[in-house]
Amino acid sequence: MAAVDPSEELKNLDSTMASIEAVLDLDKIRADIATLEEEAAAPTLWDDVANAQKVTSRLSFLQGELRKVENLRGRVEDLGVLFELAEAEDDADTRVEAEAELESVKKAVEELEVRTLLSGEYDAREALVNIRAEAGGVDAADFAEQLMRMYLRWAERHGYPTEVYDTSYAEEAGIKSATFTVKAPYAYGTLSVEQGTHRLVRISPFDNQGRRQTSFAGVEVLPVVEQSDHVDIDENDLRIDVYRASGPGGQGVNTTDSAVRITHLPTGVVVSCQNERSQIQNKASAMNVLQAKLLERRRQEERAAMDALKDSGSSWGNQMRSYVLHPYQMVKDLRTEHEVGNPQSVLDGDIDGFIEAGIRWRKQRES
């Protein structure tokens, strides 16, 4: 069988890379890196720890982004040379190597292209993720804990730092709810397509008759607030309760009343944090979560006023993915039709395919 001419695919890759480079604006990235490097070199940088962390984190992210694009551009250009070499020497092994590299580069370019689709108002923010057990009793609580682990493992695979703010454990197994942040640029834009109701079908390990059980867990993804967001909160509108933090099985993990629960009285929004030993630190973290929730509430109200929320497919209660472990093995996104036959891999954090499909699906609906 005659070998396929790769010239058209190489031309398409070159064109896609040019579009990516234009959207990302590499000249601006280089200028921003130079500015941040100057700030990072200042001897007074760490006088303000919060700002120093922001500067160094942003610098590291931009350097990584630039390196990723430049490396991929180099691989695209090297591909042409590799195919020319295989053709000139009529070398089957070199051609096999070139074709394998072509497939690898195509996948990498597609992944990078998805990044350029994140252009929403808050897409560049870090993400605040809330997970809660819904219908299904102990199986739902167990499923909620599996989802929390799935997202934390996904973040770990990508080298994204995370911080768990609050975990409310269920009595028998699993969790009632959990709140954590993914501290990476564009984490919100990336994970926002994961919002909705997730459904698990399996033989319940908690049913002594071995019956099949369907359970549900909800995922909410919010952008982390920044100082420029101006979410004004009147202290008189807050009820602040302190209590003793607890772990699985009700065992005390703290001997002081350091956990904090804040209720925003006008809206009824309740947040809590118990991950720190200091009540002051827990209150500060809980206030960050409250601000994120109120910011999202305000944003949804503004969008509703413009009738932009109609059939958006992004509300908390919309069922968006099924994880089937019995009678067959499959995970399927109900919006994009993307599916895989290895649920364990997905629950271990291999969800990039679902995220990329979700981002493309959302972009198509917006256009």
Rank of each mutant, 00 (worst) to 15 (best):
A2F: 09
D5G: 08
D5E: 08
D14A: 15
I20H: 06
A22Y: 10
I29M: 10
E39P: 01
A42G: 09
A42L: 06
T44N: 15
T44H: 15
D48K: 10
R58M: 05
L59A: 07
L66E: 14
R73Q: 14
G74T: 09
R75L: 12
L79K: 02
L82F: 01
E97C: 00
E99L: 07
E101T: 04
E101G: 00
K106H: 02
K106T: 12
A108M: 10
A108L: 14
R115T: 15
D123Y: 10
A124W: 12
I131L: 12
E134G: 14
A140W: 03
Y151D: 12
R153K: 13
A155H: 13
E156H: 11
H158D: 05
H158K: 15
P161Q: 09
P161I: 08
V164I: 15
D166W: 05
E172Y: 11
E172R: 12
T179Y: 05
F180W: 11
T181W: 04
V182I: 15
A184D: 10
A187V: 09
A187W: 06
G189V: 08
T190L: 14
S192T: 14
V193P: 09
L200M: 13
L200I: 15
I203S: 00
P205S: 03
G210F: 03
R211I: 08
R212P: 06
P223K: 07
E226W: 03
E235I: 08
D237T: 01
L238D: 06
R239G: 01
S246T: 12
G250H: 01
Q251A: 08
D257M: 02
A259L: 02
I262N: 00
P266N: 03
T267R: 06
V269L: 06
V270W: 00
V270A: 04
Q274C: 01
Q274W: 01
K283M: 03
A286C: 00
L290P: 04
Q291D: 00
A292M: 02
R297Y: 14
R298A: 13
Q300M: 11
E301T: 01
E301R: 11
E302Q: 14
D311K: 08
S312L: 08
Q319M: 13
Y323K: 06
M330H: 07
T336A: 01
E337R: 11
V340A: 08
N342Y: 11
Q344V: 10
Q344W: 02
V346I: 10
G353Q: 12
G353W: 02
I359D: 07
K363D: 14
Q364V: 10
